[in-house]
Design a protein around this nucleic acid. Structure first.
Length: 373
DNA sequence: CACCTGGGCGATTCATCTCA
DNA sequence: TGAGATGAATCGCCCAGGTG
């Protein structure tokens, strides 16, 4: 069996290989081209089954066996307060939505030093554990969380790794930026990765993946994650759910009505659900961290099936200051920071990245295609 | 005043342009 | 045609300020 390891950062790929059974396998490493937007020249060379995982966002690592992905890995050392821990959530979800198990490595807490205050730990928002569990419930595919090693709960001010914000990195220079391999969390993660490798080798990738949630090692991890949600005081009222509202869909339809005419009718799917979840942000229009939080809200509140059509509630994102008008049964949205035009201009700008819109012709010597000048 | 929320930016990378 | 300059998109991460 041949393994292929797609990476964004080669040192992290080497780190995972060296610490798992991958080191004993026949494998090749390849650089991952992450999107049409960031690398339009090379993205089309990515195999289709990898593109499917990249459709929302690119993970740090994808491992495949005979051209079939077996797991993906995402790693971050950011302070996971508020909605930050959900920034990478779309990547984990995109992987699982394609039946590919995903791993998330994230610190339990990171030391942040603010103006006029002593350094202190910014702790993870435990709601991420509930969101991952909901993803697992829907897809029956593991999406496992492991703590990036830190000094936590050591006192922040005297933390041995205070200069690194309390985060513990591997000492080996070849694995620069990777987590400390000897840490117990990382050891557990390597075991889970080895378990997946063993199962798919014995049962085949397709059947193997479906049986992974029944494996003791993975059941135990899922239990741990559920416990962390409770132990750390997780509720269904914290960020980003605190920025959501549930409204009668009729309010939304009344608001949108002014845009309906003979040429445009609001779709039946939107109308078919009685209630709508609104995620409201009053920020400048941009990516991070909102798309990840939006994906998490989908799983935490709306989804009841594998496709986005299978939602109990509509999921709508509002850019701007939203108020509910209970007199006229509609919405009021006022924004000074961003408007729908920001979205439209972003879409227009990406037209430049569309390789189909560019003119190509065969080069004179027929060695390939070149852009017409 | 501890905790939580959520709006923000700089560094990096890569494609494309410009000029010799 | 190639090298350096330029501009833009993305990634990775930041922590001020509000709240109870």
């Amino acid at each position: 069996m041949k393994y292929r390891i797609w990476y964004s950062t080669e040192s992290f790929a080497d780190f995972i290989i060296a610490n798992t059974n991958l080191k004993n396998k026949i494998y090749t490493k390849k650089k991952m081209y992450e999107s049409d937007a960031n690398n339009s020249k090379n993205f089309h060379t990515m195999p289709d089954h990898i593109k499917k995982i990249l459709y929302l966002d690119a993970p740090d690592l994808i491992i495949e066996i005979d051209h079939e992905p077996i797991f993906s890995v995402e790693v971050s050392t950011e302070a996971g307060t508020g909605h930050n821990v959900f920034q990478r959530f779309a990547r984990l979800a995109a992987s699982v939505e394609n039946n590919v198990p995903s791993f998330y490595i994230y610190p339990e807490a990171v030391i942040i030093t603010r103006q006029n205050t002593a350094p202190r730990w910014d702790k993870i928002n435990p709601l991420v554990f509930k969101a991952l569990d909901d993803v697992m419930s829907i897809y029956k595919i593991p999406s496992l969380f492991y703590y990036f090693p830190t000094d936590y709960p050591h006192d922040a001010v005297t933390s041995p790794n205070l200069l690194k914000k309390g985060v513990k990195y591997d000492q080996n220079r070849n694995y620069a930026g990777s987590p400390l391999a000897t840490d117990s969390e990382m050891q557990l993660m390597f075991s889970a990765m080895n378990e997946i490798i063993g199962v798919v080798e014995n049962q085949g990738v397709i059947r193997g993946r479906e049986n992974l949630l029944n494996k003791r090692l993975i059941i135990d991890r899922r239990t741990f994650m559920n416990q962390e949600f409770i132990v750390k005081g997780g509720t269904m009222n914290t960020s980003p759910l605190s920025a959501t509202l549930k409204i009668p869909t009729q309010y939304l339809l009344n608001y949108l009505r002014k845009h309906e005419n003979t040429h445009y009718q609001i779709g039946e799917l939107l109308k078919s659900r009685n209630e709508t979840i609104i995620y409201k942000v009053d920020a400048k229009f941009r990516g991070d961290p909102y798309p990840g939080a939006l994906a998490a809200i989908d799983y935490l509140l709306c989804r009841e099936g594998k496709s986005f059509e299978e939602r109990k509630y509509n999921l709508v994102m509002v850019w701007g200051n939203l108020t509910i008008d209970n007199v006229n049964n509609t919405l009021n949205i006022i924004s000074t920071k961003s408007t729908i035009n920001d979205f439209i201009s972003s879409v227009q700008a990406s037209e430049n990245k569309n390789i189909l819109s560019k003119e190509y012709r065969l080069s004179d010597n027929f060695c390939g295609t070149v852009k017409k000048s």
